[in-house]
Design a protein around this nucleic acid. Sequence first.
RNA 1: GGAGAGGUGGCCGAGUGGUCGAAGGCGCUCCCCUGCUAAGGGAGUAUACGUUAAUAGCGUAUCGAGGGUUCGAAUCCCUCCCUCUCCGCCA
Length: 378
Amino acid sequence: MLDVKLVRQDPQAVAAQLARRGFEFDVAAFEALDAQRKAADVESQNLQAERKSAARKVGELIQGGMAVDEAKQAVNETLEKIASQIDAATSSARALSEQMDELMLGVPNIPAQAVPEGQSEEDNQELLRWGDIPVFDFSPRDHVDLGEGLGGLDFETAGKITGSRFAVLSGDVARLHRALINFMLDIHLQQHGYTELNVPYIVNADSLRGTGQLPKFEEDLFKLRHDADYYLIPTAEVPVTNMVRDRILEADEMGEGLRYVAHTPCFRSEAGSYGKDTRGMIRQHQFEKVELVQLVRPQDSEAALENLTGHAEAVLQALELPYRKVILCGGDLGFSARTTYDLEVWLPAQDTYREISSCSNMGDYQARRMQARWRNPE
RNA sequence: GGAGAGGUGGCCGAGUGGUCGAAGGCGCUCCCCUGCUAAGGGAGUAUACGUUAAUAGCGUAUCGAGGGUUCGAAUCCCUCCCUCUCCGCCA
């Protein structure tokens, strides 16, 4: 979430920044709630302070030899006053603080300065192109035609086993799929200095709140019936990033930053996306991803996004896949991101570039949500 | 699934109703002492929120989480979570 101090300081400026991504921040509502919250907090703290000193007084009197009832009688006035007020004051302070949390959890990250203005992916800006687009003297088939033709890709059977938006891979196609996973993991381990992780594919609600999927995007997730609090991961970003939730990293542990790579399946309900970009293996309910996560010091985050994007590009280059790099405009930016580069790979059958990789700098947004900190030696 | 033990500060570990945010030790930081090293002495060493110019003070909260009893809870009661040991079951 955003730094609430920053929001208090200049809510209008925050609202203006958020408007760049098409989010309407209600300044008046925020200020009203914050004022209420603060007043309730002060009242409840004052009452608690009174109770504390009164209880201490009772204790002193008892130690001094006075009977318990007598001691209570001696501070009776304060005790009565507190008894009648403290419950209401503390529960109201808590309720208001929870309301404020809810409000702040629903506010997306502020776009970075460099993020272009715009409403939709139409307004994303191309930064570079890599590779030569292949020219064929025939009309290229897409992965569905090729895969089904080779007998290695079977959507119908997957439909029987489960339902739509799943695939069965078999034979060489399955093997190629596995090979790509290892290939990417090895590049990132051996050349880019990442540590490999194998993480749970099921996470709790706290983790999803930490990375920003909850509370606003529950409909995109698969929730397990087994436990009210368990969900299938929509990306390895959730388990990997949440490793540091509620932690304070020491400076030596943090070092120059932590780099993790994890391969996991990802599960997404893709609610509301029916009919859009759904041919073949695009937008499946289940897909595999090799995820890169860097946890870095604040001053290093811009550079980390650049080098992480380079690491993703290295994979496409090694595979000799033509691609382009675009920076997402404000309106296309994900909830938790302040800057996002999409890598779009050339799809010959579609005669266009399509997103294959998405690299984001979250700034301190997720760190604040999950109370992940580091001890700055300075 | 059954039975038992346990969760306290960076770590270890006291504390079973009273001035405890918490003894002591270790670690770490700073200072002193010491002609190397080692040893020794002193001070300090959590986080959040509020107040504030302040990372100074002061107030409040936090001893796995939540709820309860009480004037007062780390300490008593209830629920949950997690860890460990043993048994059972399943793969």
